[in-house]
Design a binder for these strands. Structure first.
Length: 430
RNA sequence: GCCGCUUUCGUCUAGUGGUUAGGACACAGCGUUCUCAACGCUGUAACACCGGUUCGACUCCGGUAAGCGGCACCA
């Protein structure tokens, strides 16, 4: 069997959103699963729509997710991606060849491919099965623009051939262009790769995900505190599902939904990709992020939180660790840290309980000599017992007078602050 | 208009010629509980429609409808 070689072909006309990025993931997984190669080819043939910096952003996304490419021209010891504008002469050569063969012609400075009528072009799509088009519905199309750049149609075909791409996994929106590509492959005497057209992620209104839906890029999600693991897991399960024997779902049993990149590379296969367009669902992404936040080792979590919170950076390690362990189950994204840890820096807005209760709480706190979590809970529990208080009410009084907001378990929360700070806050409530 | 793709709970999905059509998110209730979470349990909720094939179809076939995509010197 010949080697699997796949590619992604982003054009630097914007920053890819979740939908485009999922296509990258599937290509990457397919390459890894089959011990193949994954290449990145920047298709920058549209000079007008070019967006400055987009190319770097695209690569930044790949790096963030850990979906790196395996080859490309060497630059400074690293592989850089292939870039079509650097290969400009190539396309012209093949366009000229087609003209010589009488299969293309010049038209106002551009070169058009001549579509032979009365033919049927079909292929066995990796995802949809057989698809065919009659050539009569396709008009002669431009392959070289008058500015000397190839159009997408010529560019992909030439490069997919030259780069020996074995499988093209791209979005469904390319289905109707595929016969054009087949024609060019045929005209140049080349064997086409296999094609698989992935259903595209859509917005709540079922139309293609776009800025209109507020579709964000992976970089935006990263900046909002989403973890790459969560993003990957979420994208993988949009339009693809794990084999039942892996997910292990029997009646009543829960199915496995959490998969690491490593696991995915082992179980990924094209035949489990769906044919329907999945709707983007932020709630589910949030759930994945929470799950990964919960399982991340505290040490790693701490480092990440420091990147997102100025406050966290100023805290000493011990306090930060305590706060993180209290806040960890409550946050959805890394940026939530500040929100949930705010009570440890400043009192909230809830009203203080009646003075007699606060006074009692104050005395209770004052009775504590060793200020650590264990002594705090021991002594306060004892206090409740001795004074014959209602535990819930007493703890609530503490919460309200010290934090004036919702908090994690109160004794642990108190231990984050110093005794002085606690007393000062209680004093304020009197 | 022409061409193409698609159709299981609100959403992501599993699944079989004969099932109580399974799981997840979300939602609701309950439990736990000092609040908020987390966690556990329970619940609501789906095979687009019409024909055919078959003893039997959600599953196979045909059609209809609906949705989406393409028909650029954009990718």
């Amino acid at each position: 069997m010949s080697q699997v070689r796949v590619r992604i072909a982003p054009s630097p006309t914007g920053i890819p959103h979740i939908g485009n990025t999922r296509t990258v993931l599937f290509n990457w997984l397919y390459a890894r699963k089959n011990n193949g190669k994954f290449v990145v080819r920047i298709e920058d043939t549209d000079r007008k729509r070019q967006v400055a910096g987009a190319q770097d952003k695209i690569l930044e996304i790949l790096e963030f997710l850990g979906l790196l490419w395996d080859e490309g021209p060497e630059k400074g010891g690293n592989f850089s991606p292939y870039v079509q504008s650097e290969r400009k002469e190539l396309y012209k050569k093949y366009a000229d060849e087609l003209i010589e063969k009488g299969l293309a012609y010049e038209d106002e400075g551009a070169i058009r491919f001549k579509v032979e009528k009365g033919k049927t072009w079909s292929w066995q799509d990796l995802i949809h099965g057989e698809i065919s088009f009659k050539s009569d519905v396709i008009e002669d199309f431009v392959i070289m623009k008058s500015d000397g750049f190839p159009t997408y149609h010529l560019g992909v075909v030439v490069d997919d051939h030259l780069m020996e791409i074995s499988d093209v996994l791209r979005g469904d929106e390319w289905i109707s262009s595929t016969p054009k590509h087949l024609m060019i492959f045929d005209a140049l005497g080349w064997k086409p790769p296999k094609f698989g057209h992935l259903p595209v992620i859509v917005g709540p209104d079922k139309s293609k995900l776009s800025k209109r839906h507020g579709a964000k890029s992976v970089l935006d999600y990263r900046d909002e505190g989403y973890l790459p693991e969560a993003l990957i897991n979420f994208m993988a399960l949009l339009g693809w599902s794990a084999p039942p024997e892996v997910a292990r779902g029997k009646t009543g049993d829960k199915e496995k939904e959490l998969f690491s990149l490593q696991e995915l590379t082992e179980i990924f296969s094209i035949d489990r990709i769906n044919t329907t367009n999945p709707v983007f669902n932020l709630e589910k992404l949030n759930w994945f992020n929470k799950k990964y936040l919960q399982t991340l080792p505290v040490k790693n979590l701490k480092e990440k939180i420091k990147q997102f919170s100025k406050k966290a950076k100023t805290l000493d390690d011990d306090r930060l660790t305590k706060i993180i362990s209290l806040v960890r189950d409550r946050i959805t994204t890394l940026t939530d840290f500040d929100k949930y840890s705010a009570i440890f820096f400043e009192k909230g807005k809830e009203k203080a309980p009646e003075k007699s209760k606060v006074e009692n709480a104050k005395q209770a706190i004052e009775s504590i000599t060793d200020w650590d979590e264990e002594s705090i809970s021991q002594l306060l529990d004892k206090w409740i017992e001795e004074k014959n208080l209602q535990a819930g009410d007493f703890k609530n009084t503490l919460r309200l007078s010290v934090f004036a907001d919702n908090t994690p378990p109160i004794y642990q929360s108190l231990a984050v602050l110093s005794k002085e700070e606690v007393l000062k806050r209680i004093q304020d409530a009197l």
